[in-house]
Write a protein that binds this DNA or RNA. Structure first.
Length: 859
RNA sequence: GGGCGCGUAGCUCAGUGGGAGAGCGCUCGCUUCACACGCGAGAGGUCGCUGGUUCGAAACCAACCGCGCCCACCA
């Protein structure tokens, strides 16, 4: 664009219109290749972040948008600081979620995955992914996320799958992955095992607690046990009592008869049994209760499975119940026990029950042949990485959660009875087992049908995306990564596992800092979710407010706490973008176009803005480095509104519009250009679009702002004297404006007055202009006097001032001053205060008192 | 059962030992030559409750009330 058309363009665009401009800028960034760094140099000198890979089925939700904004701020700032910055991009195959999507599609077509068969189904999922997957990519682009889209990964890519297989095989050979018949959380909806982390303990479930009598085998009586799951009694293999329970001491070693089944159950003693609960006797069902399973293993009890993986009672439940669904079996068992007269009581019982987060169904604990990963060897190094400070988790409370969880970690069930995922690299032939990267030679081998938990492959994300296990340039350039940013809910599911795998395989921590951001709740405080109807689509917000507004708003909202979504913050971001756009228009349309950006302070306000800018740069950058994004965003807002626009631009307008002083205009142009450029650089990581667009109109600006240097830190520009002097002028302006408003002076009218105050040598003209006073004329008499810092302004008589209002105002001010004086006097009369408070505080109080006294005398 | 956190203006939130803040909303004024998605000026708060520590508490401590989250194998 030529300079002239650029100016005409600026002149015409009195509003920042993100909808028209942002997509164009996003396109420019993508075409520039800026987001795709070549894999050169070392991880030490480079900067990288691996994005938490969204599900391939996913759409951008509020969490993605917030986390995207956070990571993009970090990446853009690092890039502007001259680091080779790579934001690793890709999607997750998301086993269950994706499989369900395609299954639903098949249902609509009147077929099912079973009818299709495994190979055809998996093929179908791949095609589904080609067609519908990766919508979220375009959504991230719209947000302005500077991910490396040119180097996209998928957790099912052949190379990635190779890494997954290698990790499995290695851990198997090292004895850390093993197959076992063990109690697992069975999800009847999914018909698959799930891990402990996918189980949600739901509180407040109302059940009936049945007391059931088991007769003693020797006919000497009965023992009464309590249960909320009477149908599981069909799989009982013992009755247990506490070893210290005198009531039952005589029964230990005897046998009870299991009603309905007739099996003889040993009566055993185990410390797990709480004598104070129920009758103090516990039925033991090793096949369907995690506690009982442990007790059973301790005592070598038989393990009976009465409930099958299909959710139906098995043959072991006896002829009467076999084949019934669990719920029906419960009714039938209760009915049968009632007929037998074995029920001794029933009461309402409210307790906590496990549900599957995946399907929402009640988890059925059962014994199943599954693959597990042992954690005893993997956990401690991962704990040490954090406790030693090599990995820093922010905020620190999350580090405690991390360590606590790892300290109590149990084996991880990694096999899933699904079709979509990384199929376990194990083959069987009769009694032989083969584990390897490729299928074994020879006939008759059958591969294990199960796939791995999706989190198994996600755990390798920071290095498998970079080509591990090969020693690639990308791996050398970008591993370990610098920051991992995520929500709290996957600290265990993902973050801890990445640390374990990173330490075990590439042998280094996968990232140095973990930032755990807040969860944004719906405005009413509930969880934001589609099913509750409380979800808010970030893309709709981008449509209304622009991506800059959404980014700013989400960052400003975020904190260490969970926060309620507030659309006002998004609007605040939009307002900031618009403000910056218009401030830039003022500067760019009025300056000397041949000026070069450099600080050329000529007045106190120039020194002031350079000083305030310097403080803002240090503050915002420091906040970002400390992962304090909300304060960084608000500090930027305060600088742009409260300092640059409200004061500096208003103060320099006379010089900016004065064409008679060529040198003066050139100087202020240079300084303004400097201030604008630095402000754009400072703001760019947070609100990249508007800053990039303004930059394209800055004379002499070459290329993209996203490629420029970060705002300069130069402590020499801090000028406390200028800040004090202009601070005084600002305070005076505010006092005088308030006074005018209260005494009803017409806004346009210039009032004659005398400025009788110290410290306004350089600022009196500005104060007069901004308050519409004329301090130049003489004149007699005083109609009113207004206190300003350092003295008073004496307003000369005129018919324009409501003297009664002025007097009223004076009296109000006087009363307030007297109250404050009394307060200060009381404080200083307090011997405890004078003796014990820090000297500076006492001195400050004395100065304040003196100041107040001077002012009240002036009235 | 254990642990963590929150309760400040109508709303959403800052503020962690020395005169209560922001954005939005509300009131009043302003078509001031960047912006009416604007500018200027205001109103509005027993800082959940009680007690304690301190010269001084919104902030620190204790108990309580209310809300939220995480972890946990008592049927």
């Amino acid at each position: 664009m030529t300079d002239r058309s650029s100016l005409a363009d600026l002149q015409a665009r009195t509003r920042w219109e993100p909808g028209e401009t942002e997509p164009r800028i996003a396109e420019q960034w993508l075409e520039s290749g800026l987001f795709h760094p070549e894999p050169e140099g070392s991880a030490e000198e480079n900067y990288s972040i691996a994005v938490p890979p969204p599900n391939v089925t996913g759409n951008l939700h509020m969490g993605h948008a917030l986390n995207g904004a956070i990571q993009d701020v970090l990446i853009r700032l690092a890039r502007m600081r001259g680091r080779r910055a790579k934001w690793i991009f890709g999607t997750d195959h998301a086993g269950i979620a994706t499989q369900r999507q395609v299954e639903k599609q098949l249902e609509r077509e009147g077929t099912s995955r079973e009818q299709l068969g495994r190979d055809a189904f998996v093929e179908r999922v791949w095609r589904w992914r080609e067609r519908y997957g990766g919508q979220i990519t375009g959504q991230f682009k719209r947000l302005g996320a500077s991910l490396d889209y040119e180097d996209e990964r998928f957790t099912m890519d052949p190379a990635y799958a190779r890494a997954v297989m290698k990790v499995f095989v290695d851990l198997y050979e090292q004895g850390l992955i093993y197959r076992d018949n063990y109690m697992v959380n069975w999800d009847p909806g999914l018909r698959s095992a799930i891990s402990d982390l996918e189980v949600e303990q739901r509180e407040g479930v109302v059940d009936t607690l049945y007391s059931i009598a088991y007769p003693l085998a020797d006919g000497s009586g009965e023992v009464v046990v309590a249960t909320v799951r009477p149908e599981t009694m069909l799989a009982d293999t013992a009755v247990a009592v506490n070893p210290d329970d005198d009531r039952y001491a005589a029964l230990v070693g005897k046998q009870a008869i299991l009603p309905l089944i007739g099996r003889r159950l040993p009566i055993i003693a185990d410390p797990h049994v709480d004598p104070s609960f129920g009758t103090g006797a516990l039925k033991i069902t090793p096949g369907h209760d995690p506690n009982d399973f442990e007790i059973g293993r301790r005592h070598g009890l038989e393990e009976v499975s009465a409930i099958g993986e299909d959710g139906l009672m098995t043959a072991a439940a006896g002829e009467r119940f076999a084949g019934l669904p669990v719920a029906e079996a419960q009714r039938a068992v209760v009915q049968a026990l009632e007929t037998e007269g074995s029920i001794r009581g029933r009461e309402e019982y409210i307790h906590t029950v496990p549900f599957s987060q995946r399907s929402g169904q009640r988890v059925e604990p059962l014994i199943s042949l599954q693959w597990f990963m042992a954690m005893d060897e993997l956990g401690p190094p991962a704990i040490n990485a954090v406790t030693s400070g090599r990995i820093r988790i922010h905020p620190p409370s999350q580090a405690r959660r991390y360590v606590d969880w790892l300290e109590g970690i149990r084996p991880w069930c990694i096999s899933r009875q699904l079709w979509w995922g990384h199929q376990i690299p194990v083959w069987y032939r009769e009694s032989e087992t083969y584990v390897g990267l490729d299928a074994p030679d020879g006939e008759g081998w059958e591969r294990d049908p199960d796939v791995l938990d999706t989190w198994f492959s996600s755990a390798l994300w920071p290095f498998a995306t970079l080509g591990w296990p090969d020693d690639t340039p990308a791996l050398r350039a970008f591993y370990p990564t610098d920051v991992l940013s995520t929500a709290r809910d996957i600290l265990f599911l993902w973050v801890a596992r990445m640390v374990m795998m990173g330490l075990r395989f590439p042998g280094e921590i996968p990232f140095a800092d973990v930032y755990v951001h807040s969860v944004i709740q719906a405005p009413d405080g509930r969880r934001m979710s589609k099913s509750l109807g409380t979800g808010i689509d970030p893309l709709d917000l981008i449509e209304s407010y622009g991506a800059d507004g959404v980014r700013f708003g989400l960052l400003a909202m975020s904190s260490a706490q969970d926060v309620r979504f507030s659309e006002e913050k998004i609007a605040q971001g939009q307002a900031l973008a618009n403000k910056l756009w218009n401030a830039s228009r003022l500067v760019l349309l009025r300056i000397d176009r041949s000026a070069r950006a450099e600080p050329r302070p000529r007045t106190v306000e120039d020194r002031w803005i350079l000083s305030r800018l310097q403080r803002a740069v240090q503050d915002v950058a420091g906040r970002i480095d400390a992962f304090d994004f909300s304060h960084a965003a608000l500090a930027l807002y305060d600088f742009v509104y409260g300092e640059l626009c409200d004061w500096y631009l208003e103060l320099v307008k006379p010089r900016l519009y004065d064409d008679s002083d060529e040198q003066g205009h050139a100087d202020v142009s240079a300084t303004l250009l400097h201030v604008l450029s630095e402000t754009l650089a400072l703001a760019h990581p947070l609100i990249p679009f508007v800053t990039e667009e303004v930059w394209s109109h800055v004379p002499g600006a070459d290329g993209l702002l996203a490629r420029c240097s970060a705002a300069t830190i130069d402590p020499a520009l801090v000028d406390a004297a200028a800040e004090a002097e202009l601070g005084r002028a600002i305070a005076a302006v505010q006092v005088l404006r308030a006074w005018r408003d209260e005494v009803g002076a017409r806004p346009g009218l210039v009032l004659a007055a005398r400025l009788v105050a110290d410290g306004y040598e350089e600022t009196a003209d500005s104060v007069a202009r901004l308050t519409r006073f004329d301090f130049t004329g003489g004149g007699d008499g005083v109609a009113a006097s207004v206190s300003v810092p350092g003295g008073t302004v004496e307003v000369l008589p005129s018919g324009e001032v409501d003297l009664d209002a002025a007097a009223r105002r004076r009296e109000e001010r006087r009363a307030k001053l007297l109250a404050e004086i009394e307060r200060a006097e009381r404080k200083l009369a307090n011997s405890g205060f004078v003796a014990k408070a820090p000297a500076a505080v006492v001195e400050g109080e004395r100065e304040k008192l003196a100041r107040l006294r001077v002012e009240v005398e002036g009235l």
